[in-house]
């Protein structure tokens, strides 16, 4: 009898897939932020990892909104709106947190891992 048979390999692969699924399940939901999804009118959503510091300019209905990713967090830095509520929202770091420049149509939402809620009241 050989030590390893083909069926054994199949079992190991299956088990590895199951374990992978467990990891994937862990990473969906709201909790520690991992990426930010930025949507703008008429454009495909962009997803940036919060791990890499960078600035990004997103074209909106009124002009460009500038967002900054730094130290695992993201915020609006510049925006052509008058209200400036998007900038005022400050740094976002947790899954589910959203800042939006409504007049410009630019929305930044942090996607993270952890507990999953269908909706947040705030």
């Amino acid at each position: 009898m050989t030590v390893v048979r083909p069926a054994d390999v199949a079992v190991v692969v299956l088990a590895a897939l199951l374990v992978g699924a467990a990891w994937a399940a862990l990473w969906s939901g709201g909790g520690e932020g991992e990426t930010v999804r930025i949507t703008a009118p008429g454009a495909q959503p962009i997803e940036l990892t919060l791990a890499a510091d960078r600035s990004v300019s997103v074209a909106g209905a009124l002009g460009p909104s500038v967002l900054e990713v730094r130290g695992g967090r993201v915020r609006f830095v510049e925006s052509p709106c008058t209200g400036r509520y998007c900038i005022h929202a400050g740094w976002l770091s947790r899954g589910g947190q959203v800042a939006a420049c409504l007049p410009n149509g630019v929305v930044a939402e942090v996607i993270g891992s952890g507990q999953q809620f269908d909706a947040i009241s705030f």
Partner: peptide, 30 residues
Amino acid sequence: VNAGGDLRAIGRRGERPWRIGVRHPRKPGV
């Protein structure tokens, strides 16, 4: 239907009820 954090929910989400989180007023997270 969730209008900026004010919401109403009807029915269920399949096998389970809807799970709503209420944010902490000062800290990030639910």
